[in-house]
């Protein structure tokens, strides 16, 4: 802990340069993992004996749903850090994660209804899993909208952070909803306590797609943080010295 000055990386200037190097690497990792995951999902994983080929939506639905929750927790974490330590970059990080989290939430809901229609016979039901995931989407939208409605960036960061932190309560509700309530939504495919209830190749395909989603999300969030830094720090001298600005 003592050897590294962590606050050095909290300075937008240092972070801007560092993240610029990581984005292409993460982007290519995401791309190749997605290709591998889709190949496993469509060509190696067997047909499900109950749901036929419709189950293949799992390879996009489950990673999207996981990301929607993970990104929310990351957003709440950075919002809390920003609120407590008043570090500029933390709040920007929270703001950068929100749109990607909202996108994955929307994708989880939509691909879920594309899966629900052939297997349950309905696009939507108001069961605990679906409803709590819809609330997650509203929390993301509320966070973004509240932030956008306050002109002063520092005040906007603080106000939006409260929504992010309080809303984090919804994440365990989504996760455990299939256990706590009788839902139409099927139970967890993977559980820490028991062996997976699916073929190994299905599981691998899903995990590879999840890793691809992680790499994508980090790359995109870093890219967005850089945009936010450029927008907020546009009067700083170092921004004017950037090679992107000079050229």
């Amino acid at each position: 802990m003592t050897g590294i000055n962590w606050f050095k990386y909290a300075a937008p200037q240092t972070f801007f340069h560092l993240s610029g190097k990581w984005i292409p690497v993460l982007g290519w990792i995401a791309f190749f993992l997605a290709i591998a995951g889709l190949y496993i999902g469509f060509f190696i994983a067997p047909t499900d004996f109950q749901q036929g080929e419709a189950y293949r939506i799992i390879f996009i639905h489950v990673p999207a749903a996981w990301m929607s929750m993970v990104i929310y927790l990351a957003m709440a974490f950075w919002a809390a850090i920003g609120l407590v330590f008043n570090t500029r970059l933390s709040a920007m990080m929270a703001l950068a994660l929100a749109p990607t989290g909202a996108l994955f939430t929307a994708l989880a809901l939509i691909t879920g209804s594309f899966w629900g229609k052939p297997t349950w016979g309905t696009w939507w039901v108001w069961d605990a899993r679906l409803t709590s995931e819809l609330i997650l989407l509203f929390l993301y939208v509320g966070f973004i909208a509240l932030h956008a409605s306050i002109d002063n960036p520092q005040r906007a960061d603080r106000a939006a952070a409260i929504i992010a932190i309080v809303g984090a309560l919804n994440v365990p509700i989504i996760y455990f909803s299939v256990q706590w309530w009788n839902t139409l939504h099927q139970g967890a495919s993977i559980n820490v306590a028991s062996a997976p209830k699916m073929a190994v190749t299905m599981l691998i395909g899903m995990l590879v797609m999840t890793l691809a989603s992680w790499a994508y999300s980090v790359a995109v969030a870093l890219f967005r943080v850089r945009c936010i830094i450029l927008e907020r720090e546009r009067h700083a001298a170092w921004v004017n010295d950037l090679k992107e600005v000079k050229s």
Partner: peptide, 20 residues
Amino acid sequence: SMGGYAVYVWSSFGLTILAL
């Protein structure tokens, strides 16, 4: 044809790719 589920499967993947 995705075993008759083409509309649902390809819509899900197509929409996701477009969104990203």
